[in-house]
């Protein structure tokens, strides 16, 4: 039952990728809330910014999926 304290390079990298997958929604939330902090720049520019963030999230999630997709290991 006892889990190892230190990991080899490969598993270590995978764990950090899992961390990234967990952090992603929070990063997205912060980016989505950014327009509230700016002085109004108009609906057009704000809209473009939102679409760019959105597309960025999709891209990062797609890249993470390449590494994490087929894993179904235990929670670390």
């Amino acid at each position: 039952m006892k889990r190892p304290l230190f990991l080899a390079r490969g598993p270590y990298r995978r764990r950090r990728l899992r961390d990234a997958a967990r952090i992603l929604p929070f990063a997205g939330a912060v980016l989505f809330l950014m327009p509230l902090l700016w002085p109004s720049r108009g609906t057009g520019l704000n809209g473009l910014y939102m679409l760019a963030v959105w597309l960025g999230l999709v891209a990062v999630a797609a890249v993470l999926r390449l590494w994490l997709g087929d894993e179904s290991g235990p929670e670390d």
Partner: peptide, 28 residues
């Protein structure tokens, strides 16, 4: 009210890009 309609899509977007944390457990 302008961009406000986007909020309805932003919530699901955040939940799904973060599938590793919550949705994976739910589905399992």
């Amino acid at each position: 009210s302008g961009l406000e309609f986007m909020t309805i899509y932003m919530g699901p977007t955040l939940v799904f890009v973060g599938w590793w944390g919550l949705l994976r457990k739910l589905v399992r």
